[in-house]
């Protein structure tokens, strides 16, 4: 196989998110933080969020990682800003399902926006953890917020 198959994983939109990430940074001390590490590669991602009236008012991420983890984090911040916490957590679950090759609803696919392009990660099992790192961090953060 040539590198053609790479194009299904590294679409232009994915590379664009990795090179010009959205919401890259760290929200102030009044926000919630959660840091997660991918133990296989040592990449660390910190996600910070502000929740107001049960809705994600802002979410940012920092940390270095591979193209997939950076693009995925950027796509996540775009998809989940302004989402109610419960809806966001449900979309995180849908994203996890999609990335492991499960079919998800057209509505969720639409709500995930650019992130839905990462469905092809399912063909690269070794990269699933890269794609889900930021999402798991945000989910942990929201779980703490809900508790």
């Amino acid at each position: 196989m040539s590198l053609d198959q790479m194009s299904s994983l590294y679409r232009e939109v994915v590379l664009d998110h990795a090179q010009h990430p959205h919401h890259r940074g760290s929200l102030g001390p009044d926000s919630l933080h959660f840091t997660l590490e991918n133990p296989t590669c040592g990449d660390v991602i910190d996600v910070s969020a502000q929740v107001k009236d049960g809705t994600i008012a802002a979410v940012e991420f920092s940390g270095d990682g591979c193209t997939i983890s950076q693009a995925s984090a950027s796509m996540m911040t775009v998809a989940l800003t302004h989402q109610p916490v419960a809806k966001a957590r449900q979309l995180i679950l849908s994203f996890s399902k999609m990335i492991t090759g499960e079919k998800i609803s057209a509505t969720d696919e639409q709500a995930l926006g650019d992130a839905s392009l990462l469905a092809s990660v399912a063909e690269f099992p070794a990269r699933i953890k890269c794609a889900t790192l930021a999402w798991h961090a945000l989910d942990e953060l929201l779980q703490k917020e809900e508790a």
């Binding site: 196989m1 040539s2 590198l3 790479m6 990449d43 591979c66 690269f124 070794a126 990269r127």
Partner: peptide, 25 residues
Amino acid sequence: LHPHDAATGLDLLGVEVRAGHHCAQ
């Protein structure tokens, strides 16, 4: 280029190399 991205590309070309911290953080 992150080594995971490089290793995924090399794998598609049949070249199996390790990418990671090699248990030496």
